[in-house]
Write a protein that binds this DNA or RNA. Structure first.
Lengths: 114, 114
DNA sequence: ACAACGCATTGACGGTTGTCAATGGGTATG
DNA sequence: CATACCCATTGACAACCGTCAATGCGTTGT
């Protein structure tokens, strides 16, 4: 991550396209994860799930954030569609936790947060 | 990041709001960074800048991505407004690089990508 | 002076997003 | 059965986002 202090010498009309080393499919996947986390509510939900030692039920999030229940449910659905969390129903409650088979890339991003 | 396999026992009408340990201001800042990175083009731009050993000029990105020049300029502006990159003008060219005084949180997220 | 280049800004457009009210379905309790 | 609770889905709406065409401005070369 070191940067040269000097600026490159350039010639008019000649550009130097940087090499994109990330595979396109990976770009798309990473973007989806970032979009799922790029919301204050979902970010806090994801961090809470990451740090929780037990699955968290939806009513807890509804009690935590000043949002309507459908909105909380909507955010959980987005985290689920992004492949970040999984849900287990027990009685009336829905318990969420981070997916156990979380890809390494997703795990690294989650651990970089907070 | 370990999860208990068993689900908590719950009682109707009683919720257990998880403790949010992240400071609200930090949530907002992190969200802004994630929103800035949650686009395929900007993600690749940021990774390219992170891995570049020299500042990259805008025309290089314009040549790399199949997007109009205003769109590329717009994306660079968003990365700049998020505090991720800084620009130095030299002659006709604008060279971008990661901000030298990047906060630790932003740096950790960037290094978790790709 | 004039033309060419690099880049930012503006305006406009369709698509996406965050939010809520209303509704419905499933599960436990009286 | 009836009620209360938990949760997901739908529909609607304003706000935001990604993109391009057009324009403007500063710099360089002829």
């Amino acid at each position: 991550m070191a940067k040269a202090a000097t600026l490159p010498e350039r010639e008019r009309g000649v550009c130097c396209p940087p090499t994109i080393k990330v595979r396109p499919e990976r770009v798309e996947g990473t973007t989806e994860i970032l979009k799922a986390l790029a919301d204050p509510t979902r970010l806090q939900m994801a961090i809470a799930l990451r740090d929780a030692d037990q699955p968290v039920c939806v009513c807890d999030f509804t009690a935590t954030f000043d949002l309507s229940q459908p909105t909380v449910s909507h955010h959980m659905a987005r985290l689920r569609e992004a492949g970040l969390v999984e849900v287990t129903k027990k009685g009336i409650w829905s318990f969420y936790r981070l997916r156990s088979d979380l890809p390494l890339g997703a795990r690294r991003i989650l651990e970089a947060l907070g």
